[in-house]
Design a binder for these strands. Structure first.
Lengths: 206, 206, 206, 206
DNA sequence: AATGAATGAGCGTTCATTCAT
DNA sequence: AATGAATGAACGCTCATTCAT
């Protein structure tokens, strides 16, 4: 029983690694066999189909990236510096997490693309992706509100608007990084986030 | 002679349509045969390989989307309204153009994703994509400068910074639209652009 | 386990048969499927590629033709009669061996041609073919030496020279048989060997 | 009319070149188009099919290799030296002939293999090949007879037997050269012939 | 005489999946 | 829980050939 769980998780980790590097479509059972060292039958024993693997991997990915609920961002974020520190810290933790189980290989597909491919292959994954996005958006809003409370943003600033703009900018910037460099490294990603944050707030002469 | 050019172009149009709808990887010669009504051999007579089709389609796509050079955006754009009008006008024209040759089918892959897949499949396409992006960025900068000249942006505003932020925001927003609705319509795209523009400038209390 | 070995060997036997009859290039997976009754996938399960089949068939062919090491030819061969008996006996055994696993079908490609095609398709097979040839040459030398010991060849005769000449004659004669009759039978082959031997030694007025 | 003949001959020369280098089966119309610079249609205008090209090329090959009838070999050959000189001279001429129209490319298929492939592809070519072989055999017999007349071979020597043996030896040796070195050069071929001749006659203590 | 557009069968290979063991 | 034998459909691509111009 324990063994079963272990093998299942082992397959998921390996599959996620492959999906992020080659993309779902380009990962074959051949690849999975080679990388896991397991037989085709063994994989089929744990997952009904390739699509089943994708769905399970996605759940695994989401859950692995979940942050332990600490104090609300609204309370933590007091100014731009603490905002930046919090956000980059979270990204670093997430990256470290995936890095660890991926043996340091350079990622080729970023999160957004992984999401997109997942949705394209399985419509059921659309909903959780939406949820994740909204969650991130909400997170940014809470951060903004924290700054507003501390007088770093005017009382009349539309928090939701700013959050949405920043969110889209970050998404766009992250995607851009992929266009420029197919094999981006964690450090580069972090830099892109940091730069985007600076860019965003420098528009307001922070 | 006439036939050759026509058939070649016909194949390109059909392929572009399929690529934008299903993605390059998921389009097979089977699909191309069915959609064009031509035999496999006929297609191979005009294009050496599937990758050759991709590259040619890409060139075709780029060239088809090119704007006739009119007066500089710097001169046209006088305020937010004229900026918005110009940008949405261009987008509308581009969409109309592609719509026309795609028979009104709903797009599934936006430009960014088409670019990304192209790059992933053929490294040679990286350079033209980069060029296109820089061109769009430059266009936005020129628009910003036009506004600045007319006192709609402070003299000290960093034009390049603003352009970059807007560009990323628009990219992110466009991508988001795809996440939300796999089969987005032209109207929705235009709305996203318009909203993003509004969002961006409303941050400065325009 | 048993099944795998059996199927693999079964494919090899069938492939050898087809290669000897039609030539490697002209044997398609279609042919292999039809003749074996297996699916394409099944064959690919056992062999990575067509070339892999060729290499494996070649090894199989060589190993199947190997003679059990008995007493040295030098000791067995005492005169022309015993030489002829030994050589034809070996050829007969080899033929019988291949016949058996080929269901009595008339051969179309002789050994030399099979070798050549193998080399042309896969350079790695050049070495084993060379080795086989040298081995046969050595065998003939040892036979000659046996005759020399028994005074059937002059002390001063160049054993290596005679062996080489005979070897080439036999190769040439065997090839000729193929030109004359594309579908040569075992009996004809044996006759060609016998005649060539007679021809060779009759030059010395044996 | 003259043009027609010229193009036809040009195609034949090019095809022969390709056949000798790659083998009939491996030469495609693609190759022929590329090498000739002509269109597919143009080649089909002159030859009904690929097999038609083969047959025509074969005739061309045979006729191109024909020797102008001079004095009978029986009269020319007086001893081993003159025999060797005559035979090697003829071979050299033949090689020079083919070399000239092949631009110095190393041959990969020797005559015997070219013949064999031709026969395999078209049964009608069997007869002319047989005729050619018999002609060569006859030539060797006449040479032997010339030597016999001059007392260089015993009166009782069986001329036909010796000729046949030599012929086979030379065929075998030539084939061997191909096994050893896939891309044999003219000089090597000539050496093989010379060596074989020496070998053959040294058996009689010439 | 020559072009090149178009065909359709066939090639070797990869794929996700099933199933008996 | 795990193996690996077997399947059949699909893939991108090459081929010799036909035909209108």
């Amino acid at each position: 029983m324990k063994a079963k769980t272990d093998t299942r998780r082992y397959i998921l980790e390996t599959a996620l690694q492959l999906f992020l590097v080659k993309g779902y479509k380009d990962v074959s059972y051949q690849d999975l066999m080679q990388k896991t060292g397991l037989s085709k039958g063994a994989i089929y024993h744990h997952f009904a189909s390739k699509e089943d693997i994708l769905v399970s991997v996605f759940e695994f990915f989401v859950q692995a990236g979940e942050q332990p609920r600490g104090p609300s961002p609204e309370e933590i974020v007091k100014d731009f510096a603490s905002f930046k520190k919090l956000l980059l810290g979270i990204r670093r933790e997430q990256f470290a997490h995936f890095r660890k189980m991926m043996g340091g290989k350079p990622l080729r597909f970023n999160k957004m693309l992984f999401f997109l491919e997942a949705i394209v292959e399985n419509k059921k994954l659309k909903k959780p992706v939406d949820a994740l996005m909204k969650q991130e958006l909400l997170f940014l809003e809470q951060c903004m509100r924290g700054m507003q409370k501390n007088g770093k943003l005017g009382k009349k600033q539309d928090i939701a608007l700013l959050a949405r703009n920043l969110f889209w900018m970050m998404q766009g910037a992250e995607a851009m990084l992929f266009f420029m460099s197919g094999d981006a490294k964690e450090k580069e990603f972090i830099k892109v986030y940091a730069d985007t944050l600076e860019d965003f707030f420098s528009m307001f002469n922070f």
